[in-house]
Amino acid sequence: MENNTQLLKGVLEYCVLKLISREPTYGYEIVMNLKRDGFSDLSESTLYPLLLRLEQKGKVTVERRPSPKGPSRKYYVVTENGREALQTFQQDWEQLCKLVEKIFEEEADE
């Protein structure tokens, strides 16, 4: 995915939102989950502005929770607005994938 920065920009917000929708989580944990899932080049400096945008758009809220080590952490929690955005994105993504696959299948048939 290193060479697909523009493509990644368009979907990363929704990948992050999906992770948050599974359970409230904090920034470092999101980065580690994304890296585990193959987003190896992702850094916290990419993630935190994205989380701020999600909060400003009303797709997540922030809760301060105690940390077992050190100061409290900001946990991100998906909102109803965020869940609706995820559902819309998933439908749009599935439709787009079908269209792209169709085009690439036509090329393979030639």
Rank of each mutant, 00 (worst) to 15 (best):
E29Y: 12
L86Y: 06
V60A: 03
Q91S: 11
E107L: 15
P24E: 05
P68C: 02
F104Q: 15
R73F: 09
V16K: 02
W93G: 02
Y28E: 15
T46S: 05
D37H: 09
V77H: 04
Q95K: 15
Q95C: 03
L47Q: 03
P49I: 05
G10K: 00
G58N: 06
K9H: 06
Q95I: 05
R53P: 01
E107R: 12
R83G: 12
F89K: 04
K74G: 06
V62H: 01
F104S: 07
Q90L: 11
C15R: 12
F89N: 02
F104H: 13
S72L: 07
K35G: 10
R64F: 03
T88C: 11
P68Q: 04
Q95P: 02
D92I: 11
S43P: 00
V31Q: 07
L50I: 07
V11S: 11
I30Q: 02
P49E: 04
D92L: 12
V16S: 01
V16M: 00
G70S: 08
P24V: 00
Y76V: 04
G38M: 04
S21V: 02
L12C: 01
K102Y: 14
S72E: 15
L12Y: 03
F104C: 14
V78N: 01
V16R: 00
L51D: 08
T46E: 11
K59D: 09
L19N: 09
K18A: 15
T25K: 01
L47N: 07
S40F: 08
C15F: 07
L8F: 06
K59V: 00
S40H: 09
G27F: 05
D109V: 10
E84M: 10
D41Q: 13
E55W: 05
L34S: 05
D37Y: 11
V62L: 05
K57A: 13
E101K: 13
